[in-house]
Nucleic acid binder design. Structure first.
Length: 167
DNA sequence: ATATCGATCGGCT
DNA sequence: GCCGATCGATATT
């Protein structure tokens, strides 16, 4: 099972919206681990969210995977962090997992890369109450698989599918 | 088109 | 008891 990551958000210990900005505990320990590991948490009692740790150890950081466009699937099947985790079967047992082929989860460049329109929109993160001013959310402008808009965002296009996964 | 709301639950106060 | 890095349904402009 695979797809193209089309929407992400960044989080860092340096700002208040990051789960690791205030306390370090068993719950968020993964955020402080080394790059390439997963930080998975339960949100709203219902959904899991998946981050990839990016910065050095002992410095909380992560990129939240928000949407993935998948071939031969509904364009919204992994459109949003909770749906994404669901679709890929990721839960708390994957917390602290290191990305690698051996572990069954990894990221690589796709052969479709040349065909994809790589224009990005950079805007505000969704669902946070602090550090709202930071524009640390990015998505592929032409993707049809973007999650709901942040307030004040312009609507992502739902026409003009950006090539690969037309049904 | 935006706004509000309920479901659901582990961790914290 | 309160609160979420959510989602889908419903209500309202």
């Amino acid at each position: 099972m695979w797809g193209v990551i089309v929407e992400t958000e960044a989080y860092s210990q340096a700002e208040e919206a990051c789960h690791g900005s205030k306390k370090r505990s068993n719950k968020n320990e993964a955020l402080f681990s080394s790059p390439g590991q997963l930080y998975v948490y339960l949100t709203y009692g219902k959904y899991y969210c998946v981050n990839i740790v990016t910065d050095k150890s002992d410095w909380a950081s992560g990129v939240l995977l928000r949407s993935i466009a998948m071939p031969n699937e509904d364009e919204r099947s992994a459109s949003g962090p909770g749906l994404l985790a669901n679709r890929f079967g990721i839960n708390l047992t994957h917390n602290r997992l290191k990305l690698s082929k051996e572990n069954g989860f990894w990221i690589s460049q796709t052969s479709l890369y040349q065909e994809i329109d790589k224009k990005l929109i950079q805007t505000n993160r969704i669902g946070i109450s602090q550090a709202k001013e930071l524009k640390w959310r990015w998505y592929l402008q032409k993707s049809r698989s973007i999650s709901k808009r942040a307030s004040g965002d312009k609507s992502p296009p739902r026409h003009n599918a950006w090539i690969p996964f037309a049904h």
